[in-house]
Design a protein around this nucleic acid. Structure first.
Lengths: 144, 144
DNA sequence: ATTCTTGCAAACCATTTGCACAAGG
DNA sequence: CCTTGTGCAAATGGTTTGCAAGAAT
């Protein structure tokens, strides 16, 4: 079994367990949406996902996409971002933690810097909180 | 002249120069909105600003608020945030750079950590970009 | 005088809701 | 069965747009 299929099955398992724990039903629609999302490279928005599934002749509604996205966010299988005045998502299971550099042009680059974890620890101590996640965005433009 | 009035006049000046540079007109509405925003402590959204001004018997429309907010963002007099599924703003002139810790409860705390600047420098070098701004959000919950 | 800006109302569009039917437990 | 979840269509609500009147330059 190759890496992608392995990810697929582990992701399914995570979602399955989450649905059980929360007493939600394991519908084929929910797993189909999960699979479609995990096929996407990079960011996506609801409309793109809707079109992708419609093109594959899925009978799916936007309402169900919104509902399922909510569940996937809750069990940390996807992450939501809001910049440039729109919402988009990305898969987050077993993908290296990364943040975003948003350029003037609209281009979005990803980067990874472990020093953010030090800041995180400090904030946890100062405020006596347990931090589960972070989002860091830099805004800039290319130098000539 | 006390500190607040001093800020007021400097902010007006910044906005005034920006409007000149960009060839936009200096309307009383624009300055009134600026003043109202700078009276607000903490975050606000468009509706709150609209109600605040209506209560003071301003004759102002939401359309103008949206337009003016756009100008104020462009000249860096305010900053926009989108978390918990809504847009809100805060004034940003001469207020210490800070980031946000968003708790489960919906509570939003502010913090300041200079180490973010080191990360920023590194990213500028690696990607050969000029970073003008950043936003860092931590998500967590209070420990008992 | 010309052009930009305003308030108002209508339009827009992403997201949510209501409902009847389908299907998971 | 009972209840949750689904697709569809209508409703919602924040934001944008079109337009006639008003104001800045």
């Amino acid at each position: 079994m190759d890496i992608m299929n392995d990810t697929q099955s582990r992701v399914r398992e995570v979602f399955s367990e989450y649905l059980s724990e929360k007493g939600h039903r394991k519908t084929p629609e929910r797993f189909a949406i999960l699979v479609e999302i995990y096929e996407i490279i990079g960011h996506f928005d609801i409309e793109e996902l809707y079109v992708k599934m419609k093109n594959k002749n899925y009978r799916v509604s936007r309402a169900t996409l919104y509902n399922t996205i909510e569940l996937l966010l809750d069990c940390d299988l996807i992450k939501k971002h809001q910049f440039n005045n729109s919402s988009h998502f990305e898969k987050s299971f077993q993908f290296k933690q990364h943040d975003h550099l948003i350029l003037d042009s609209g281009e979005v680059l990803e980067f990874c810097d472990p020093r953010i974890l030090n800041i995180r620890k400090t904030i946890e101590e100062i405020y006596n909180v347990e931090i589960s996640d972070h989002k860091l965005y830099f805004y800039g433009k290319k130098k000539e």
